[in-house]
Simulated scan of single mutants.
Amino acid sequence: MQPDNRKPVSPGVKAALEYGPLIVFFLAFMLLRNRSVTLGGTEYGGFIVATMIFVPVLALTTFLLWRLTGKLSAMQLLTLVLVVVFGGLTIWLNDERFLKMKVTIIYAIFAGLLALGLILRKNWLELVMGEALPMQHEGWMKLTFRMVLLFAGLAIANEFIWRTMSDTAWVNFKTFGLPVIMFAFFMGNAGLFNRYALDKKDD
């Protein structure tokens, strides 16, 4: 097996590839939200056209991430699969509900998997993130429980917003609300990280 000679990807490039598709979707939607486009004899609203742009852009950036880093996280792979499936259904059926439901499904899956891990006493979050964030096992258990609540709450919030509010409100929630909530969550758990952090000399 040949050694991987890839150079580390700069944080700026990585962030651009990870969040770029979402920004592209936001910009396309804001530009086209009050317009309709006719393609192949079918009329599509701005949300659907933005989805047509978003799906291939996400596929391309995910491929580039894989080529640059040599790996993809489970979350990135699951997101890509669900975006392609539900984004494809959104376009094919000309029904924006499918892409909106995708967010609920992603967070529900993560909440369910982490909860199952707690029940089985197998901390999958620690297996995935333990190298980047060394913590004692007890710390990982507490963080996992909190993330189950977070993901379940986000799934419920997404359902409430897309079913009761405008497309613009949902796009703003997806583009800005979700990243801010995730950032606030991890900042709010800084005390837990410090309390259960492993010293480098510890095994």
Rank of each mutant, 00 (worst) to 15 (best):
V24W: 01
F25A: 05
F25T: 04
F26G: 15
A28M: 13
F29P: 13
M30G: 13
L32N: 01
L32Q: 08
L32K: 09
R33D: 09
N34I: 06
R35V: 01
R35T: 09
S36G: 12
V37W: 10
T38F: 07
G40P: 03
G40I: 04
G41Y: 09
G41I: 04
T42E: 03
T42W: 01
T42K: 08
E43V: 15
G45P: 01
G46N: 02
V49D: 00
V49H: 05
A50S: 14
A50R: 06
A50L: 08
A50H: 12
M52V: 03
I53D: 09
I53A: 10
I53W: 07
I53C: 10
F54W: 08
F54Y: 11
F54H: 08
P56V: 10
L58S: 13
L58F: 06
L58D: 05
L58Q: 14
L58T: 15
A59I: 12
A59H: 01
L60V: 08
T61A: 06
T61M: 02
T61F: 09
T62V: 10
T62D: 07
F63D: 03
L64V: 08
L64T: 12
L64E: 08
L65K: 10
L65M: 13
R67K: 12
L68C: 02
T69C: 04
T69W: 00
G70Q: 00
G70W: 00
K71M: 00
A74C: 04
A74K: 10
A74W: 02
M75P: 10
M75D: 09
M75K: 01
Q76P: 08
Q76F: 03
L77A: 13
T79L: 13
T79G: 14
L80P: 05
L82T: 11
L82R: 05
L82M: 11
V83L: 12
F86R: 09
F86Y: 07
F86P: 11
G87R: 10
G87N: 00
G88H: 08
L89E: 02
T90Y: 07
W92L: 14
L93R: 13
N94D: 10
D95R: 03
D95W: 09
E96V: 15
E96Y: 04
R97G: 04
R97N: 15
R97Q: 15
L99S: 12
K100N: 00
M101G: 15
K102V: 03
V103R: 03
T104L: 11
T104A: 09
T104C: 11
T104K: 02
T104W: 02
I105K: 05
I105P: 01
I105Q: 05
I106L: 13
I106W: 01
I106D: 09
I106T: 04
Y107K: 05
A108M: 04
A108R: 08
A108E: 13
I109E: 01
F110T: 12
A111W: 06
A111E: 07
G112A: 13
G112E: 04
L113A: 14
L113I: 14
L113K: 10
A115P: 06
A115F: 14
A115L: 15
L116F: 14
L116I: 15
L116E: 08
L116N: 14
G117R: 06
G117K: 04
L118K: 11
L118V: 05
I119Y: 10
R121T: 04
R121Q: 14
R121G: 06
